[in-house]
Design a protein around this nucleic acid. Structure first.
Lengths: 122, 122
DNA sequence: AACATTTGTCCTGCAATGCAGATGATAGAC
DNA sequence: GTCTATCATCTGCATTGCAGGACAAATGTT
């Protein structure tokens, strides 16, 4: 069995799933993550993440054809591989199993004041 | 705003939430994670994780009283702090936002054969 | 009191991930 | 050829993930 997915890697794989069908290249992947999570990420982060996922065989890539549209460097198109889908699935399952039944409790904590053992130490 | 939670840190915080009310100390935390996720973790991993969460103020701890039960070292009791609940919440939200609508697509990939762009490259 | 046993924590060290910013490469437009 | 828009890659460091063994402290035993 393959390794565990990191948190950011997970985001990248989801982005790939989101973009499936269309061109999924760095810039779009980054945008997908920012759009969905509302958090800013650098493109460098995305590419290094993609490369590491590729090393593990979870993602594949190839250089795209030059587009007729507008200038710029050629895109590298990324694709989620079966191994990647499995890894993402495992990751999702772990999250689900770990959070099962606890979300209401989390909300309660956030509401504050009702923390059952709310002593302040260390 | 505080930092992003790592994947394993997230598990630890959920475990703390799970154990809330009772003694939450290293051994139980570890067991909670293993029970829920079905994956083995070393106790060392748990303690270093807890310590780092503590440094960030997401978790607090104090040494417990010696129990009348049976020998052994004193427990260190951990507690989820408000900042920790917030961090966990943010982390959950990111996951939710990122995965929204994509789980069916993921299942489809796992079922195989219907990958819309299933070319093998690199 | 010494020591054996049990229970639980801490330490050390390294590998993997997260992340940003600068730099480099290529394509079309003029 | 040069400009400019697009993207990708490189470099480097901080943070997290993780394991295994060492260590500590409590109780029971003789």
């Amino acid at each position: 069995m393959t390794k565990n997915l990191g948190e950011f890697e997970q985001l990248i794989l989801f982005a790939l799933l989101d973009l499936a069908g269309s061109d999924s290249y760095g810039v779009l992947i980054r945008e997908a993550i920012e759009r969905r999570t509302g958090r800013a990420v650098s493109s460098g982060a995305v590419y290094t993440g993609l490369e590491r996922l590729q090393e593990q065989g979870l993602v594949s890539s190839h250089i795209g054809e030059p587009t007729a549209e507008r200038g710029g460097r050629r895109k590298r198109l990324y694709r989620l591989q079966p191994k990647g889908a499995e890894a993402l699935d495992r990751s999702v399952r772990i999250f689900t199993a770990m959070s099962r039944g606890l979300l209401p409790r989390l909300r309660a904590r956030l509401a504050g004041n009702d923390n059952p053992n709310a002593r302040e130490d260390v």
